[in-house]
């Protein structure tokens, strides 16, 4: 495992961690965190692939002819992706607060049970 692949391994570890949290943790806030970690791993992937070996920050320097620059495009893209990620997390957490207010819990399966109970109560309640 060369040092060049280290970042990629970390991307995979983060990605799997994120997905695992989404799957394994019933708590909605933790799930949102899992999603965020998953997104971060992709952002890291982009950052990593923009890196050019020995390259420096892509700022033009007068007179320096043979300087290798890192690819700036993925960085720029990730600025947008980070904003998207933040927006998603914010909206998710806001929704989680509202869900907690309404259901009194943040456990996914408990919410699901409450929802099914809602449906059955409505059916039993009849047309009026």
């Amino acid at each position: 495992m060369g040092p060049g692949l280290y970042n990629y391994w970390m991307v995979i570890v983060l990605m799997m961690t994120g997905l695992y949290v989404v799957l394994a943790r019933p708590n909605l806030v933790k799930k949102i965190m899992g999603v965020t970690i998953f997104q971060m791993s992709v952002i890291m992937l982009y950052i990593t692939l923009g890196k050019v070996a020995g390259g420096t920050a892509p700022i033009l320097i007068e007179g320096a002819e043979d300087v290798a620059y890192s690819n700036p495009v993925p960085h720029v893209l990730m600025l947008t992706a980070i904003v998207v990620g933040i927006a998603t997390t914010a909206l998710g957490l806001a929704l989680a607060i509202r869900v907690y207010e309404e259901f009194g819990t943040l456990e996914d399966d408990e919410i699901r049970d409450a929802e099914i109970a809602d449906a059955m109560a409505a059916e039993a309640g009849g047309a009026d």
Binding site: L19, V22, L28, K31, I32, V35, F38, Q39, V42, L45, Y46, L49, V73, P74, A81, V84, T88, L91, G92, L95, A96, R98, V99, E102, F103, I111, R112, E115, D118
Partner: peptide, 30 residues
């Protein structure tokens, strides 16, 4: 209904996974 909230949150998490998959795919293409 209150179920709108939980449905939206579920959609958010799953939808974000989907969106991120696309982002990942785009990164790999690049």
């Amino acid at each position: 209904s209150r179920r709108a909230l939980s449905s939206a949150l579920r959609y958010l998490i799953v939808g974000t996974l989907g969106g991120t998959f696309i982002l990942l795919g785009v990164g790999l293409l690049y």
